[in-house]
Amino acid sequence: MKKIHWIILGTIFIITLVLEFTVLAGYDSHWWNAIPAFYAIFGFVICYALVYSAKFIAKKIVNRDINYYD
C-alpha cells in the first residue's frame, strides 16, 4: 500500500462521514443510528474480533496436521 492509496481511502471515508452528518443527520430507523460513524466502528471492531476469535478457534479446536485424515 502506497501513500496515495491511503489518501484515496481516507478521502472516501471523510466523504461518507460528511454525508452521514449532513444528508443522514435526521435518519433514525435503528437504535444504532444514534452512534456517530457506527458502521465504521462496527467494521473495524468486528474485523478484529473475527480475526482473533477465528485464530483462537483454529489453534484450540479445529486445526490439525495436513495429513490428519490419511
Binding site: 443522514l24 465504521a40 474485523c47 480475526v51
Partner: peptide, 15 residues
Amino acid sequence: VVEITQIALLTFVAF
C-alpha cells in the same frame, strides 16, 4: 451506500 462503504473501508484497514 454510506453504511457499506464505511464497513468496507474500516474492515480493510483492520485487515
